[in-house]
């Protein structure tokens, strides 16, 4: 049950040296652009850029391969699903129909469809690295400070910090509880029938929830006793000051963002259409 989870990877790289706030903003602009655009040229650019940035970050592929594999499988399935559900989506979007080789039903393989699915796949691929890099290159204790820096109320920012702080503890609780219940003969494996497994799941949910509610109470008190929420604003011990590199990064990213939107929408449509 020690599931691999994505977490901070200690390195000394230009990306690591950027402040969390910068990375967070870049992440938002990046995924924003990648979400809006459907322009193949832009997507291609983003894709290559993200590979480059990834290189700079000195994070090894091996360290995140478990996620990558997962994503690729997901994308493959998604593409299949799209084709099954709507094999002519591309035709609808691009308005032309070049059949490569005909198939029964409306399952003709068309250039447009392939092109459309290439785009959607690239789209998901380009969103990925930004978020991924943000997680693995930002120390969790800087996370909250960053949120607060970009305008999120410090109370909410801090609850994010709390979540990150207590995920490992709660995972440990969870395992302990699961073990305790298994020892009493409650089977959590896939063997049982669904209703039985729901009951068994409850045997874990209840202890987990009640320990968590206790936690909420004690932590609330501990925080109150140390003056949390006293002032309108709050400073952060592990926040890092903006440096020149941060402004540069933001500038570049902003530029890319605007450009990508211009290129995408100058022809009043999100889609780049090579067929007309």
């Amino acid at each position: 049950m020690t599931a691999k989870m994505l977490s901070y990877i200690e390195r000394d790289s230009p990306i690591h040296r950027l402040t969390g706030a910068t990375k967070l903003l870049c992440f938002f602009m990046w995924s924003g652009a990648a979400m809006l655009t459907y322009d193949t040229r832009v997507l291609a650019f983003f894709f290559l850029a993200s590979v480059a940035v990834f290189k700079i970050s000195k994070v090894r592929v091996a360290e995140i391969s478990f996620i990558l594999i997962f994503i690729l499988v997901f994308l493959a399935l998604n593409d299949i699903a799209i084709y099954l559900f709507s094999p002519q989506e591309g035709v609808k979007i691009y308005g032309t129909k070049h059949v490569l080789f005909p198939l029964p039903g409306h399952y003709d393989v068309t250039l447009e469809q392939l092109f459309y699915q290439l785009n959607i796949t690239m789209k998901y691929l380009t969103v990925l690295p930004a978020a991924l890099l943000f997680i693995v290159t930002t120390h969790p204790s800087e996370f909250a400070a960053s949120l607060n820096r970009i305008g999120v109320s410090y109370r909410i920012a801090f609850s994010v910090a709390l979540a990150l702080r207590y995920i490992p503890d709660i995972q440990r609780d969870f395992r302990t509880i699961a073990h305790a219940q298994q020892a009493r003969g409650i089977d959590l494996s896939r063997k049982e029938k669904l209703p039985k497994r729901v009951k068994n799941a409850l045997a874990i949910l209840f202890p987990l929830i009640f320990t968590s509610l206790d936690r909420i109470e004690t932590i609330t008190n501990a925080m109150a006793l140390r003056g949390f929420g006293k002032k309108k604003r709050r400073t952060w011990y592990s926040a890092r000051p903006f440096a020149r590199r941060d402004y540069i990064a933001l500038g570049v990213m902003g530029l890319i963002f605007v450009l990508s939107l211009l290129i995408t929408f100058h022809d009043k449509t999100r889609f780049y259409n090579p067929f007309s």
Partner: peptide, 17 residues
């Protein structure tokens, strides 16, 4: 404060579940 903590811990439990 209680709501804030509830959000934090709640989110953590949500992730684990």
């Amino acid at each position: 404060i209680k709501t804030i903590v509830a959000i934090g811990i709640g989110a953590a439990v949500f992730v684990i579940l």
